[in-house]
């Protein structure tokens, strides 16, 4: 499992690296975040929820069924929008109201 960080979008705030429970994301000489230990990522998605620039994408490795789609989130009030971009350019959006409980 791992994430990709878009260098052009990254604003260098460092919040992804602070919140990562494995201290896996570091900052390079230009102040941009990069994934230093991709094999140690466990897919918690803490970093991408924290990113104010929507620069981080989570994807599944091919070894566990990944086919190139990439996940990120955007927060709009109480709604956390989970956005999945597919390789063909289409997009799936799943909005989750954080004030509503799971049904299952």
């Amino acid at each position: 499992m791992s994430i990709r960080i878009d260098r052009d979008k990254c604003i260098g705030c460092g919040r992804c690296g602070i919140v990562c429970p494995g201290t896996l994301i570091h900052t390079d000489a230009d102040g941009k975040a990069y994934m230093k230990y991709p094999k140690d990522c466990w897919g918690c998605t803490s970093c991408l929820k924290e990113c104010p620039a929507a620069a981080i994408r989570f994807y599944l490795g091919a070894d566990i069924g990944g086919r190139g789609s990439a996940l990120h989130t955007e927060k709009q009030g109480d709604i956390l929008r989970w956005i999945i971009e597919h390789p063909d350019g289409s997009v799936t959006v799943i909005p989750v109201n954080q004030k509503e409980s799971n049904q299952y």
Partner: peptide, 24 residues
């Protein structure tokens, strides 16, 4: 409807499973 609820439920704890359903 249960599918939709499950997709959301997994996003709230193990997002990789929701992504896997969508990838498949």
């Amino acid at each position: 409807e249960q599918d939709d609820s499950l997709l959301k439920a997994y996003l709230n704890m193990a997002p990789s499973q929701t992504l896997k359903w969508i990838e498949r």
